[in-house]
Design a protein around this nucleic acid. Structure first.
Lengths: 191, 191
DNA sequence: CTGGAGCTGTGACAATAATCACAATCCATG
DNA sequence: CATGGATTGTGATTATTGTCACAGCTCCAG
């Protein structure tokens, strides 16, 4: 048996997406492969795409004085983009790249108008998707606002253990807002 | 002369809102007054409203072990709500209350269907508004992810000086993720 | 199989922020 | 305009995290 299909992932975005819109949205997407380290969205360019990860994962990071601060990891079945850039047509301050060799469904907004008869459904889906992505991101933001570094790690351990299995300690450290040394020590002392 | 009208504030949410939709949206809103300290959204209840501040300000906070952590201040001309609660019909983990005596335009989703002929426009506006609110909130989140406490204060000083004029040091401290003593010391040492 | 690049763990020390205590100041109200 | 509660400033101390240095480990590529 195969895993979940692109249609299933689209449905998970909102239970209010009409079933008859799914084929239109699937037809809009393009499947592409990216080698580990390949940049999908480059700092300084305007983002025009959503990404749905089918295999591997995508890493979103901010360049602070030459050091990378990870803001997001997107795994199989999840969507990502840079909404600030996409919505405001602003140059991206973030980079999105493949963290492993990846297969990704690309939803390109510039290809949207070339699909007459689908536009209204696509626009509606895009708005729902945008809110969905932001609400997921808010959870990560709240780690910083409400918890201490140790509490953040325990939260991930409990609610997102996939991260611990697939992301290296150094990469995870910047995602949690601590140095790799501190994260190593947090991880060391059990409970 | 009066200040800006509710219609002007609605237009600022997105420049793609059709001018002819504005009157429908204005008619949907209800003006209400709240005394300082009055709770508009109570922890544990499902949020069904958007708020547009006309006068005064609203404060959104999270209750962590009995202590309030401020997550948002909404001033004149800006919108707020709890999108996680509103979108998912989940009990709110946050409280929204009047930080000063306030006059607020309330957009109640349950009153929406009672306005036949406006529903499509309202739904469209609500989606745009939701994204707008999240993108504004993201800026605050990035303060925590990318900057040190001192950098956060300098950022607010430069980009949001209204906060420094209208919010007490103790309230601002939790918004910046430091103790009031630390914020006092940051403020003390000039440049 | 082995050398080396890139992780990770850990000790010593420095820097930063929290905590605790209390004095000074602000300011609303009688 | 006096006064008491709330807010802010500041010192002393503790706790936490960052920085630096280096050793050990892992795991490919040759």
């Amino acid at each position: 048996m195969e895993g979940k299909s692109i249609g299933d992932y689209i449905k998970k975005v909102s239970d209010r997406i009409p079933a008859e819109d799914i084929p239109l949205l699937v037809a809009w997407a393009e499947s592409r492969e990216f080698k580990k380290g390949t940049v999908l969205l480059k700092e300084g360019t305007v983002c025009r795409e959503f990404y749905l990860v089918e295999k591997g994962y995508l890493r979103t990071w901010y360049n602070k004085d030459g050091a990378a601060i990870n803001l997001n990891f997107t795994f199989e079945g999840a969507f990502t983009t840079n909404l600030k850039s996409l919505n405001g047509r602003l140059p991206s301050e973030l980079t999105i790249e493949a963290g492993e060799d990846a297969r990704v469904w690309v939803f390109n907004l510039d290809l949207r108008r070339e699909r007459p008869g689908s536009d209204a459904q696509i626009v509606l889906f895009v708005r729902r998707l945008a809110l969905h992505i932001m609400l997921v991101a808010e959870e990560h933001s709240n780690l910083f606002k409400l918890y201490t570094p140790t509490e953040r790690y325990r939260y991930i351990e409990k609610n997102n253990p996939t991260l611990l299995q697939r992301i290296s300690l150094s990469q995870l450290a910047t995602y949690l807002g601590v140095t790799r040394e501190t994260l190593s020590r947090i991880r060391g002392k059990k409970v």
